[in-house]
Design a protein around this nucleic acid. Structure first.
Length: 429
DNA sequence: TCTGGGGTCCTAGGACCC
DNA sequence: TCTGGGGTCCTAGGACCC
């Protein structure tokens, strides 16, 4: 463990002094690293002349910049867009205009008609994602993947970190954070923000405190009260729009107010599990480990149509889309090496009402026709009397081919009934 | 001018088995 | 023949996240 702390230098920060007085660093040192405006920043590497401008990424295909005869590029503008896309990422300049990820493109076009619009290029983002994760892994190998642009890192696993930080624990931790950021920048040309705290919950919040290109350490005893409690409850990962609105209705707007609420009241309002978790989270308590490996639970494909499609009028088009989704799903399963037993469909109707149906097969499969048959059986259980805006197909209960034989023993169970089709079913496919 | 696509986890009821 | 719990699986929906 850490060497006995030396006497403090006279110019020590109050945080460091507090830390020294309390003996050492917390039991765990967890970092959350979040790439800054990731997709947009990758695009700026490709189109550096856009630096500083309002740029949004999103929508569907087209909108590729055109290179003119004189070598200059011509970009699409947000105002040129028509359709149902949402914004995936925007540059900080675009955010200043009130345009954020998740916002409908047509609504964004009202706020920032002159913003430059670029299509998403997931292959490029995946490439840079691999680069930044590899760069971090060279310094700190215990990494939990949280998607394409963020990770958790267990810094306690860095050999000798506690000895290396010596009598200046906070300075030492900050130096490690700087080293990780430099490594990411060298490997990708991109900046990121890092939060380091005793756990994942707090680090996720901390990485946002000094964005972009920031480092936030929350390691002193009073950091929870001074840095976290003033924040809105929605900053807690796991409190979304619904829970946030309900908390606000209860008069609980900040994390501090949530922390002061009676656990019994929270449990009465939100249920035993979620209510108790709200209380723990507001007090900054979280003992989840950094998980370095995980297997997928499900794999899916879905598509939203440019216009709502009618079950009868657009029958041929819907049938073709449905079959193609099944083929794409089968190909994903084959490429990734999974079989699945539970085939599910998802339908979203005009008005956004969403319905799912699923069917568990006797034997796992990755075959497009088997998936198509099961998905068709699911579809027969849905009344198709409204226009559709989305169709999706999903595979769950995944296994790897080697495990398939074990599954056969379970297949003896009585097959699930698909139930009677609703009377108004139009039985399209 | 609403609301993409890919996921995870939780809840809850009924079936079925012991 | 009224009355049990546990445990697991299946299905549907919903909240939430990146």
């Amino acid at each position: 463990m850490a060497a006995a702390p030396d006497p403090r230098p006279s110019d020590a920060s109050s945080l460091a002094a507090l830390q020294a007085n309390s003996g050492s660093l917390p039991e765990r040192l967890i970092a959350h690293l979040d790439m800054d405006a990731f997709y947009a920043s990758v695009e700026l590497l490709r189109y550096p002349e856009l630096k500083g401008q309002a740029v949004v990424i999103g929508g569907r295909r087209m909108h590729e910049p055109r290179t003119l005869a004189d070598g200059t590029r011509e970009y699409s503008r947000l105002r040129d867009y028509t359709g149902r896309g949402v914004i995936t990422t925007s540059t900080y300049a675009a955010r200043d205009l009130g345009v954020f990820s998740g916002m409908g493109m047509m609504k964004a076009a009202l706020r920032a008609p002159d913003a430059i619009l670029l299509p998403t290029d997931f292959d490029a983002y995946r490439h840079y994602s691999r680069l930044f994760k590899a760069a971090v892994a060279e310094i700190a190998p215990v990494i939990e993947d949280r998607g394409i642009d963020e990770i958790y890192i267990d810094l306690g696993e860095i050999a000798g970190i506690r000895e290396a930080v010596g009598f200046d624990p906070l300075g030492g931790v900050r130096a490690v954070a700087r080293e990780i950021k430099n490594s990411v920048l060298r490997a990708t040309g991109l900046t990121c923000s890092i939060g380091i705290t005793p756990n994942k919950l707090l680090s996720k919040i901390a990485s946002e405190l000094d964005k972009p290109d920031g480092i936030s350490l929350l390691l002193a005893p009073d950091d929870l009260q001074t840095r976290i409690w003033p924040l809105g409850v929605r900053k807690i990962n796991g409190i979304g729009p619904k829970a946030g609105a309900k908390l606000q209705a209860l008069g609980l707007e900040t994390v501090g107010q949530l922390a002061a609420a009676e656990p019994a009241m929270l449990i009465a309002q939100f249920g035993k599990s979620f209510g108790a978790w709200l209380h723990e989270a507001a007090h900054g308590r979280d003992n989840r480990p950094v998980v370095t490996h995980s297997e997928p639970v499900s794999i899916s494909r879905e598509t939203t149509f440019e216009r709502d499609l009618h079950a009868v009028h657009d029958r041929a088009a819907l049938g073709a889309i449905f079959t193609r989704l099944c083929e794409q799903l089968a190909s994903d399963l084959q490429r990734k090496g999974y079989l699945g037993r539970t085939v599910g469909i998802k339908l979203r109707f005009e008005g956004f009402h969403t319905v799912t149906r699923d069917l568990t097969l006797d034997l796992p499969t990755q075959d497009a026709q088997a998936i198509r048959r099961a998905a068709g059986a699911c579809l027969k259980r849905v009344a198709l009397d409204k226009r559709l805006r989305l169709l999706g197909v999903r595979m769950g209960s995944l296994s790897r081919p080697g495990q398939a034989t074990e599954m056969r023993a379970r297949a003896k169970r009585a097959p699930a009934s698909t139930g009677p089709a609703p009377a108004e079913n139009l039985s399209l496919f």
